[in-house]
Simulated assay, not measured.
Amino acid sequence: MRVRNLHLRHLAASPDRVGALLDGLASAADPLWPADRWPALVLDRPLEVGAAGGHGPVRYTVAAYTPGRHVRFRFTAPRGFDGFHEFTVEPGEDGTVLRHLLVIRAHGPALLTWPLVFGPLHDALLEDCLDRAERALTGTVRAPARWSPYVRLLRAAAVRAGRRRDNPLGARAARP
């Protein structure tokens, strides 16, 4: 199964200001990733080609990086996720477009885990990320993302599982 998942946000800010958010990914004061609501994006070194890490059970390496413009992460886990996800900063009309694209060839366990678990969680996380970018650049969010009842159920199940064992979604996932 081929998956192509696109999220984007038109932002009333210059490409340089949006690019600065991108360059802060996985830093101690990451201005883009919603680590207050989701597992933090952690890398084994600063954002650069070859850096390895991930968030929660999702693992990847930095395959390409153009400061202020583009970063591509190639998946290494979970099993069955062959592909990448990337952020791109694109000049747009009256501002800039921050774009996130995920492309995978799902096989094996991912044929079930993508549509039932990872896909809905991914969509919610990315909308939270774009809300965070909009708030950082404009001081407000025009239409804040809302988690679906299904996403809230998945997160509650992950928190319960985290109490029973070391779960990557753990306690951080409990915060609404």
Rank of each mutant, 00 (worst) to 15 (best):
3 V>E: 11
3 V>S: 03
7 H>P: 14
8 L>T: 14
9 R>Q: 07
11 L>N: 11
11 L>M: 04
11 L>P: 13
11 L>D: 12
12 A>T: 08
14 S>M: 01
15 P>E: 12
16 D>Y: 07
16 D>N: 07
17 R>W: 09
18 V>K: 01
19 G>K: 02
20 A>V: 08
20 A>F: 02
20 A>I: 07
21 L>C: 07
22 L>T: 05
22 L>V: 04
23 D>C: 03
24 G>S: 03
26 A>T: 06
26 A>Q: 04
27 S>E: 06
28 A>Y: 01
31 P>R: 15
34 P>M: 08
37 R>N: 01
38 W>F: 03
40 A>C: 00
40 A>D: 01
41 L>V: 00
42 V>P: 07
42 V>A: 03
50 G>V: 00
51 A>H: 01
52 A>S: 13
52 A>Y: 03
53 G>K: 06
54 G>E: 01
58 V>K: 04
59 R>F: 09
61 T>E: 15
64 A>Q: 12
67 P>L: 00
68 G>V: 00
69 R>A: 10
69 R>E: 05
69 R>N: 02
72 R>L: 04
72 R>V: 03
75 F>G: 05
78 P>G: 07
79 R>Y: 14
79 R>V: 10
79 R>M: 12
80 G>F: 09
84 F>Y: 12
91 P>A: 12
92 G>S: 14
92 G>C: 11
94 D>V: 09
95 G>I: 08
96 T>D: 09
97 V>A: 09
99 R>V: 01
101 L>F: 08
104 I>H: 08
105 R>I: 10
106 A>F: 08
107 H>F: 06
109 P>E: 05
109 P>A: 02
111 L>F: 07
112 L>H: 06
113 T>S: 14
115 P>A: 00
116 L>Y: 00
116 L>Q: 01
119 G>E: 04
123 D>H: 12
124 A>K: 04
124 A>D: 06
125 L>Q: 08
125 L>R: 08
125 L>K: 07
126 L>I: 11
130 L>H: 10
131 D>V: 05
131 D>G: 03
132 R>E: 10
132 R>S: 04
132 R>P: 00
135 R>Q: 11
137 L>G: 04
143 A>G: 14
143 A>W: 09
146 R>D: 03
148 S>R: 02
149 P>Y: 02
156 A>H: 12
156 A>V: 10
156 A>M: 13
158 A>I: 03
159 V>D: 15
159 V>S: 14
160 R>V: 11
161 A>S: 12
164 R>L: 13
164 R>W: 11
165 R>S: 12
170 G>F: 05
171 A>G: 10
171 A>H: 15
174 A>Q: 14
176 P>S: 09
